[in-house]
Design a protein around this nucleic acid. Structure first.
Length: 281
DNA sequence: GCCCTTTCCTGGAAGC
DNA sequence: TGCTTCCAGGAAAGGG
């Protein structure tokens, strides 16, 4: 499940593999519905001959700037993966798009569940501007975060998963951050005080940086789990404190981790460290 | 505008 | 063992 640390790992891998400066000789689209815009034929026609001038991440989007002025947005959603293949290598299972590069490699997109989308846009700003602030951006202060929470009646966890509020968090890092901050996921956002907001932002940054340094989280094996461009598993799964650790002791107090549903999403908490309402007992 | 529910999709786990 | 059922997840659409 690629979230901010996993997408950033993919972007860094692609940059290290020399994607910037590569000219796309042609695009091959095997599964039309993976191309969100424009029509797959037009997509292939527009991208052919373009040079990839820069790659970056915004939220969970991979953002590729092209010499034509267009922007290619790739969202991996649940099971999307990018990898390099040798020229003309047959399609593997669940491979949907291929960019044939001028140095001979093919950048292939594989996505078992086909939730991911590619968008080729002349102006990506309307999509990217819908996203909330980057949690690791130094300009995003605790005061700004507190202000975002103060006017929301929603529960804090679904709010953290809302990309319009804050960009890049998914189920894993939201659970980890709430545990780290000692906050119950069902707390109404507006019930958090300034100090809670400050602590939560600090925890969000801590778990994201830990995920980044571990090159992402890979919870299982097989086609539905995260692998970087180099086909490498992440190492952060061994550092998770609550996510998918139901019944195992809380690293802080030893209480068994509980699993509950919050806004339809499986959620992992320590029932002792994360109380629904603040009490001092 | 905000919030909640539903939908998309398929491998793999769980249940019988 | 083999079959069926259900769950996992991010984001967008639709409804209140």
């Amino acid at each position: 499940m690629p979230e901010l640390p996993e997408v950033e790992t993919v972007v860094r891998d692609l940059r290290a593999a020399g994607i910037e400066g590569q000219r796309v000789l042609r695009a091959r689209v095997r599964t039309a519905d993976v191309i969100g815009a424009p029509h797959p034929r037009r997509f292939a026609a527009c991208i052919a001959g373009c040079t990839i001038t820069a790659i970056r991440r915004r939220g969970k989007y991979i953002v590729l700037a092209l010499s034509s002025g267009d922007t290619l947005l790739v969202h991996l959603r649940m099971t999307g993966r990018l990898r390099f293949r040798s020229p003309g290598e047959p399609w593997a299972a669940h491979e949907h798009v291929s960019l044939v590069l001028h140095d001979g490699r093919e950048l292939r997109y594989q996505d078992t569940r086909r939730f991911g989308r590619w968008h080729l846009l002349d102006d990506a700003a309307p999509v990217l501007e819908r996203l909330g602030p980057e949690p690791l951006d130094a300009h995003f202060t605790a005061a700004r975060f507190g202000a975002l929470l103060a006017c929301r009646t929603r529960q804090i966890k679904p709010l953290l998963l809302d990309q319009r509020v804050i960009a890049g968090l998914g189920n894993i890092y939201a659970d980890e951050a709430l545990w780290d901050a000692g906050l119950h996921p069902e707390r109404p956002a507006a019930s958090l005080g300034a100090r809670d907001a400050q602590r939560l932002l600090r925890s969000i940054r801590k778990v994201l940086r830990r995920g980044l340094s571990g090159l992402g989280t890979t919870l299982g094996r097989g086609q539905t789990h995260f692998y970087s461009v180099a086909g490498r598993r992440g190492r952060n799964q061994g550092r998770l404190r609550v996510f998918r650790r139901t019944g195992r002791p809380c690293p802080r107090c030893g209480t068994p981790i509980a699993r509950l549903k919050v806004a339809q999403r499986s959620t992992h908490i320590c029932p002792r460290c994360q109380r629904p309402v603040q009490d001092r007992h």
